[in-house]
Amino acid sequence: MKKRKKTLWNICSIMVIMMLALTSIKAAGGTIEINLKDLPQTEIEKAGVTFTMYKVGTMSDDGKADLYETYDMSLPDTAEGLQKLAEELVEQPGKEKVGKQVSDEKGYLSFHNVENGIYLLVPSDMERYGKVAPFIVTLPMYEDMDDGYQGPSYHLQIEPKASPNNEPEKPNPPVDPDEPTPPIEPEKPTPPEKPEEPTPDHPMTPVRPGTSDTSTTTTNKNEEPKKDMTLTQTSDTSRTGLYALLVMLSGLGMYIAYSKYKKGVS
């Protein structure tokens, strides 16, 4: 009987010691560790990046979180909403500063003995490393898993979102070779109009080989100018002969009249 009581007493003592140990751990507060990730740059310096931590709200062990009323804001439940809230809180004056830590050569720093709350971490002095955006964490933290929320967790390990100082420009996407641009077809030339065939006034008479027939009424277009030229030349010649004849007759008349006049005088 005494042995059983002693065993029960030992079990109770162990449970009390464990409860005291848990209470002391919780009283000591949580830890927030930050590890800077590698960036696609030839030269980066992880050492010297400073993180300033501000307390901006309260957080209970059962997961109830509230921002301070002075900010007149609510805590969103999405990553995009938390990022936007962090950028807005950076501009708010009168924030409660908790501490400041600087990263070592490996890009590591930590905050210890952190009590429950909502915290804003603001980076600075990061010109030799890259671009790091401010972010918000809660202590304790609950993770949304497939089978529900997991937590509370009082030891946080965070790898902040970062980007290189000079991000390379994105190349233009190549043209899909499966769909080439069709070539431009040249314009088709317009065929020349057929000349109208002359309509003879009389039906053509066939000509036997080796003979010529002057009675054929078929005319060639190439011969028409020659006819015109012949008519013109004949008309000009006739007019010239007529003028010469008139001149001769006039001269003859004047000669006869002069002869008659001369005989009458003598």
Rank of each mutant, 00 (worst) to 15 (best):
residue 102 V to K: 05
residue 63 G to W: 05
residue 109 L to S: 05
residue 110 S to N: 12
residue 102 V to A: 13
residue 61 D to M: 08
residue 87 E to G: 06
residue 73 M to L: 12
residue 104 D to W: 05
residue 112 H to C: 04
residue 115 E to W: 05
residue 67 L to Q: 02
residue 68 Y to A: 01
residue 101 Q to A: 15
residue 94 G to D: 14
residue 84 K to A: 14
residue 106 K to D: 15
residue 113 N to M: 10
residue 97 K to T: 15
residue 108 Y to D: 13
residue 81 G to C: 07
residue 66 D to G: 03
residue 104 D to S: 12
residue 90 V to K: 03
residue 81 G to M: 05
residue 107 G to S: 10
residue 63 G to R: 03
residue 81 G to L: 05
residue 88 E to T: 12
residue 102 V to M: 14
residue 108 Y to M: 12
residue 115 E to N: 10
residue 101 Q to N: 14
residue 82 L to Q: 07
residue 77 D to M: 07
residue 99 G to Q: 07
residue 71 Y to C: 05
residue 62 D to V: 14
residue 63 G to I: 12
residue 101 Q to R: 14
residue 113 N to Y: 05
residue 67 L to F: 02
residue 66 D to C: 03
residue 109 L to T: 09
residue 89 L to T: 01
residue 81 G to Y: 01
residue 84 K to F: 10
residue 115 E to F: 09
residue 66 D to M: 08
residue 96 E to S: 13
residue 73 M to P: 00
residue 113 N to S: 11
residue 81 G to R: 02
residue 97 K to V: 15
residue 101 Q to S: 14
residue 94 G to A: 10
residue 112 H to M: 08
residue 104 D to K: 06
residue 111 F to C: 06
residue 94 G to Q: 08
residue 84 K to D: 13
residue 107 G to P: 02
residue 78 T to S: 13
residue 114 V to G: 00
residue 80 E to H: 07
residue 77 D to E: 11
residue 99 G to N: 10
residue 111 F to T: 02
residue 95 K to Y: 06
residue 97 K to A: 11
residue 75 L to F: 03
residue 114 V to C: 03
residue 100 K to T: 15
residue 98 V to C: 11
residue 102 V to I: 15
residue 65 A to P: 01
residue 62 D to F: 11
residue 114 V to H: 01
residue 81 G to I: 05
residue 96 E to W: 01
residue 116 N to S: 13
residue 110 S to R: 04
residue 104 D to T: 11
residue 104 D to L: 12
